[in-house]
Simulated scan of single mutants.
Amino acid sequence: MPVQPTLRTAHLLLAPFRFSDAPEIARLADDPAIADTAVRMPYPYPQGMATAWIAASIAGWANGRCAVWKIVRAGDGVLIGSVSLTIDPANRNAELGYWIRTDAWGRGYATEVAVAAVAFAFGPLGLHRVHASCLRRNPASARVLEKAGLRLEGCRRGHLFHRGRFEDVLKYGVVEEDLRPSRDEEGKEPRVPGNTGPRRYLETADL
């Protein structure tokens, strides 16, 4: 497997994790506001979990099962979260996931990284489908997925028992056919998911 690339977006760097990132990940992830809607994020965040998670992420890239990046602000180098693609190679699909530290909410960073991850999935990874889910009571995350080109596919009512209550879960997805140009667009530059313009927005440092 080639070295996992670092992706550059307008304001961010998406870089592979290093074990030296574990203390900062543990500090940021130990936040009840993040765990409230990121249902796979435990709270309190267990000691040693960040190191184990980074090790699993590194191994996952090596065996083709995932691509996980830390999200770093390009301007100041501050780590603000993570974005991931959990890959099902046999079916050429991946589940998109992300989280952003609370003091960086509301600045468009989640949309920026979601769009980059989806473009990477359909580009270098050659996948057929990307899917994701969010709690129904989390409209901000739903908007991020829609801006990244994913379409609402349904709602699983009462699907999760999360932090003392049953939660409705919205399911989103996009397939490669959704990105093919219409007859009016033939011969033009390929579209990016959502309303984000041509693919040139995404530069890769190592590809």
Rank of each mutant, 00 (worst) to 15 (best):
M1A: 15
P2C: 07
V3W: 13
Q4D: 05
T9A: 06
T9W: 09
T9M: 09
A10W: 10
H11Q: 06
L12M: 07
L13W: 15
L13R: 11
L14P: 04
L14V: 02
R18N: 12
D21E: 07
D21T: 10
I25E: 11
A26W: 07
A33E: 13
A33M: 14
A35W: 05
A38E: 06
A38K: 02
V39C: 05
M41Q: 12
P42V: 10
P44Y: 13
P44K: 09
P46I: 05
M49A: 13
A50L: 08
T51F: 09
A52H: 15
A56N: 13
S57G: 13
G60M: 10
W61L: 06
W61N: 01
N63S: 15
N63W: 07
G64C: 11
C66K: 00
V68L: 01
D76N: 06
V78S: 02
L79M: 13
I80V: 13
S82I: 05
S84K: 12
I87L: 15
A90M: 15
N91G: 11
N91R: 15
W99D: 04
W99Y: 08
A104P: 04
A104W: 11
Y109S: 04
V113L: 05
A114Y: 03
A119Q: 14
A121K: 00
A121V: 00
F122E: 05
G123P: 09
G123F: 02
L127G: 03
S133T: 09
L135M: 11
L135G: 06
R137K: 10
P139G: 08
P139Q: 10
P139W: 08
A140F: 12
A142F: 01
V144Q: 05
L145M: 09
E146M: 09
K147N: 06
K147A: 01
G149R: 03
L150M: 08
L152D: 08
G154F: 02
R156H: 01
L160Q: 11
L160T: 01
H162G: 02
G164D: 10
V169P: 01
V169H: 03
V169G: 00
V175N: 12
E176G: 07
L179W: 04
P181L: 10
P181N: 12
P181Y: 14
P181S: 08
P181I: 11
E189I: 11
P190V: 08
R191V: 08
P198W: 06
R199D: 14
R200H: 09
Y201M: 12
Y201F: 12
L202H: 04
T204A: 15
A205E: 12
A205P: 01
L207S: 15
L207P: 14
